[in-house]
Design a protein around this nucleic acid. Structure first.
Lengths: 329, 329
DNA sequence: CATATCGTAGTAAACGTTTACAGCATATCG
DNA sequence: CGATATGCTGTAAACGTTTACTACGATATG
């Protein structure tokens, strides 16, 4: 069987309380006893059972992170940053992807009973559920999701970047007919981006921007673009993320359409391969890893100092001009 | 405070045992009582505390997965498949990336006390540690790692694929001078690939294959290729994964070297963007998502049927010929 | 009518920890 | 030397569950 505090106590010839004291370095224990216990711990390779500790009310030493999904470089970037910070600070990581599952609420509630705090990303669950969990005093950080009452949030900047992108496309390249690929319902970020894109179009008296709702993976962009090709093409395709843009590349290439001379394409996220594809993709750089990183730091801060700083952090994005928008060719 | 089985019992006017019985649908409880309890559960929004359940020895309802690292499409593919299967079967997912940390052993041992089973990937931890955990009767599945005593393993096929790749490069394109980019020490898969590549070189009496050890991210491939460019170039660059190959593309482009006429390049993994970059990358397709998927299924099988099938699954890989090796241009 | 059986529900122990409290030596001090 | 303080360690309760066991009343059976 597994080695518990009892086995150690037995081997060392002391009570379990003494073992616990040695293990945690609290209380007073005679040097000779300490030595005996330490040797027993070493000998048996004892590691305290986290479940026991957690139940006792101390801490789970675990952080949760809730994703809407888990494909693509954006999420794995966030994950990477989060996991790294968490483990460095001594926490395990529990991950949950909701995939729009109907039982998401239950899953998240359950998750909340096995962590010391959690990060909730984007459109994974309703405000109501979040409030309920927050009310039970579990530290929560919102990621890529607008702040809710006094729960801190971390988001990347969208408005300014979307505005810059549109100004560039309109004033530098003179495009007037746009199509937007992506589903504003899918994420708060995309909602914001689409809203700003529309607003700028109105400012410039452009024709209404056509929206083709599609998922956020390469193949979704591929199919959506195929569909688009059956109609009259816009001058520029604004994709909600780089992967959709990649799918668009595929579909356009099959139609022998040249980017950007036949149609311009832009992405969002600036994932690592975006400057390697042909032509290099104009995109908006987001600090994905930094997002996860900061979320973890903020959460740990809340847990360990039990301070709610109610911060709303907005991480800057940066427009990255390459060739797919019509630049530099 | 949080709602426990006690609160429910109190509200329903019964003992906690009865609540537990209703909740789990075991034992006999009168219809009228059941109704009272169910109503109380609903009213309070009671969800059993997993920690309590776990401590009681029932189950954690959680699966662990240990990665060496967590960047790139390969790992997130595995993760995606694993998480999906796990959650569908009612398990939470705990993830740990070891990053060659020295405390990895402790972290994994600790992880093992909070899950019902775990998947251990590649070079994350020593055999000794794995054996120790397996001895405590925790179900384990090895992934991208050779089988160990009677612990089941899931790997993707390397030998046959590597042989096919080499035969193609030698007999079709006539290359004789190769350089291998990647670190065989880093992963079992890469070790195998490099070994076979060497073996084939010997069979064909080719000059010894030069190895440039490098990490597995795009930037690692970039720097390694820069270094390579300072020496005499081989005819073909075999990269341990696609991301390294992407980095090589970058570096070669900066030197104004054309792929494949100046130098051929091959990758491994066939990540989604590999047929989008210019020129499309010749690679070896691996069923990443399927790997994670199967690992979860196998693990859950072991947990729920407590059967050790000692299977060693080998998933087929497929050579994908595109232009970067010299084909089709 | 006495007894066995059965349905129902409560009591208490167990899981692995931590920690308040008590108790017992030993040392310190008057 | 007696009283008190101090250092050390053990006992037991608590955390939230599940479940073996027990108990009780009602019903069935002889």
């Amino acid at each position: 069987m597994s080695v518990t505090i009892k086995s150690v106590a037995k081997l060392a010839g002391v009570s379990i309380a003494t073992v616990s004291r040695v293990q945690n370095g609290v209380g007073t224990v005679a040097p000779a006893t300490r030595k005996k216990v330490l040797s027993a711990i070493q000998q048996l390779n004892y590691v305290p059972n986290r479940v026991g500790q957690a139940l006792q009310g101390r801490r789970h030493a675990a952080l949760g992170i809730v994703f809407p999904d888990f494909s693509g470089p954006y999420y794995s970037g966030v994950m990477l940053g989060f996991e790294n910070q968490a483990v460095t600070a001594g926490y395990s990581v529990l991950v949950l992807a909701t995939h729009r599952r109907p039982e998401s609420t239950r899953l998240i509630t359950e998750l909340s009973s096995r962590v010391d705090g959690m990060v909730i990303m984007d459109r994974t669950v309703e405000n109501q559920t979040i409030s309920a969990i927050a009310k039970s005093d579990l530290p929560i950080v919102l990621l890529a999701r607008p702040s809710l009452s006094d729960i801190p949030s971390i988001q990347s900047e969208n408005e300014e970047a979307a505005r810059q992108l549109m100004y560039h496309l309109i004033t530098v390249h003179g495009y007037r007919k746009f199509t937007f690929l992506g589903d504003p319902q899918f994420s708060f970020d995309v909602t914001e981006r689409f809203a700003v894109v529309n607003k700028v179009a109105v400012e410039f008296h452009l024709p209404q921007i056509k929206l083709i709702p599609c998922g956020y993976r390469q193949q979704d962009g591929y199919y959506a673009t195929q569909k688009l090709c059956a109609t009259t093409l816009p001058q520029c395709l604004i994709c909600a993320n780089d992967e959709i843009a990649f799918g668009a590349y595929q579909a356009l290439r099959e139609q022998n359409l040249h980017i950007p001379s036949d149609i311009a394409v832009t992405g969002w996220d600036d994932i690592p391969t975006s400057d390697l594809i042909a032509p290099p993709l104009t995109s908006v750089q987001q600090p994905t890893q930094k997002l996860g990183d900061l979320a973890a730091v903020e959460l740990i801060q809340m847990i360990e100092n039990s301070t709610t700083r109610a911060t709303n952090i907005l991480l800057p994005s940066a427009l990255v001009l390459r060739h797919s928008c019509g630049c530099g060719e």
